[in-house]
Amino acid sequence: MELQELQTLWSQMSRELADQKKLTNDIIMKMTQEKYVNKFGKIAVYETIGAVICFAAALYVLFNFGKLEVWYLQLCGIFTLLFLIILPILTLRSLRRIKEINVVENSFVDTIVQFTKAKNQLLLLQRVGIYLSFLLMFTTLPVASKLLKNKDLFLETDIWYVYLPIMGIFLFFFTRWGYGCYKNITSSAESILSELE
């Protein structure tokens, strides 16, 4: 297909499209109502539900923090609290940055740059979240055990023989998968940004 042919075909398509009568007033007005869930709207809903669960768990730990009498349990409790509060806030902020990109005022290039950077930041957060969640798995169990059953897991060695290997295997595959996804997406994002510079 020559360039000239491309232009001709494009014009032919444009004429065909102009003649189409399928789009009715009713269909157009239905589209103006946000009845469908757009991509980021959907992610934002999941992330908000996740954040609410995290905050509820953080509140529970916070109000019962006094039950964590020993220093190592308190350390686990503090890490759990920080994870449950900070990470969801950062993720929601990052999603808001994407949602706030002004598609009306921005130029096309500005949108590409802002979107790519915001998406990159969100992915970085998700990656950090994946790694930190393994630490969380390690710290949550003793905290939960102490708060819910009043048992100090660090004094009960048996459970660690089961818990640690299972956690290790899960961690190995999960991080490999997470890192692979992140690397692919960010490298494509980097090439987009470098092309625009």
Binding site: K30, Y36, I101, V104, N106, T111, I185
Partner: peptide
């Protein structure tokens, strides 16, 4: 054109996923 192109950037994706929209006839 500006709104359409800018909106398209926000919808870029890599792989197939399940439908999100409601059916509009």
């Amino acid at each position: 054109y500006r709104v359409a192109l800018n909106t398209a950037i926000g919808q870029l994706k890599k792989k197939k996923r399940a439908p999100n929209t409601v059916s509009i006839d």
